[in-house]
Write a protein that binds this DNA or RNA. Structure first.
Length: 305
DNA sequence: AGCTCTTCCTGAAAGC
DNA sequence: TGCTTTCAGGAAGAGC
């Protein structure tokens, strides 16, 4: 499943071949995962791809006017007209291949390019999403998105999570809090920070939050260097698999011994997701005492000093 | 505010 | 062998 490192790997690959290309015909198979297929088919042909960027798990393919049409006059500066935005969901793939190459099953969108290639979107389960976003609505689209995990400062990370009463894993998965962390990297980060996924964020010490902030950074950076994790059938824009799955410490290792302490890795459901952890390295939160009618309200000591 | 449940979809794996 | 059932999961929405 593509998370930040996989999406980043795809984006870096697309960045090699897409910028400068002019979009030609757009063809669709199924469109139930596309917000505005008619707009895409109508507006994209003739536009030039300016760049490819990432926000969280979203891929932004920048589109500008093709200013090279007039042979005589000085071409006007290209203006950004908007973005083709793609979320790969669980099984989405974006690949650039020759138009003559065979079409893999479940390929639902074809963007013909001006150099004999096509940008194709393939998605078995169609949990992905695609839309054309005009420049004028960029802010509206990005406003609710969470901070980039590789850019958020330690201070802001501690503030964002430390004030929340939810389980820490639920917050890591919440794309309005952090953009790009999914189930794999949430589990791997929590293991490295030695925090149980069901810990309540508010109850973590500043030291623990800082450890988590650092763990997320290290895990994501290491995974990007490994070109992502290939669980099931993830491949990048050139069809190549990643390698980070070989370095997972807990994800999908339930029943196997912890690399650090040899305890058996366990799997539980937290925040509706399979969560893998070492019961010794990541001790569970203390069972909250059953509240009695006349029990005093619990006072948390201020951990921020 | 935050939890659980449901929905979307398909293929893999388990069950019979 | 072959059919049926179950499960997985990112995100959004409903209901509690």
């Amino acid at each position: 499943m593509p998370e930040l490192p996989e999406v980043e790997t795809v984006v870096r690959g697309l960045r090699v071949s897409l910028p400068g290309r002019i979009v030609g015909e757009v063809r669709f198979g199924k469109t139930d995962f596309v917000d505005n297929p008619d707009e895409i088919a109508e507006h994209l042909p003739g536009l030039r791809i300016s760049d490819v960027t990432r926000r969280g798990k979203f891929i932004f393919i920048g589109l500008e006017s093709n200013a090279s049409g007039a042979p005589d006059a000085t071409p006007p500066a290209p203006t950004s007209l908007g973005y083709l935005i793609v979320h790969l969901g669980m099984t989405g793939k974006l690949t650039v291949i020759h138009s003559a190459d065979s079409v893999s099953p479940h390929t639902h969108v074809f963007f013909v390019l001006d150099d004999g290639h096509e940008l194709r979107y393939t998605d078995v389960r169609r949990f992905g999403r695609m839309l054309f976003l005009p420049e004028s609505r960029l802010a509206e689209f990005t406003r609710p998105l969470g901070k980039e995990p590789l850019e958020i400062s330690a201070d802001e990370f501690c503030q964002r999570l430390g004030s929340r009463r939810a389980r820490v894993k639920a917050l890591l998965l919440d794309q309005k809090v952090l953009g790009g962390v999914g189930n794999i990297y949430a589990d791997e980060s929590l293991f490295r920070a030695r925090l149980h996924p069901a810990r309540i964020a508010e109850n973590l010490t500043t030291k623990q939050l800082l450890a988590l902030h650092g763990a997320i950074r290290r895990v994501l950076e290491e995974a990007i260097r490994s070109r992502g994790s290939s669980i099931s059938d993830y491949v990048d824009s050139e069809g190549k698999r990643g390698n980070f799955q070989l370095r997972h410490r807990v994800y999908q290792r339930d029943g196997k011994p912890c690399f650090r302490c040899k305890a058996i890795i366990r799997r539980v459901i937290v925040a509706g997701r399979s969560s893998h952890f070492c019961p010794r390295c990541q001790p569970p939160p203390r069972k909250p005492r059953k509240l009695r009618k006349n029990s005093k309200p619990q006072i948390h000591t201020d951990k921020h000093g």
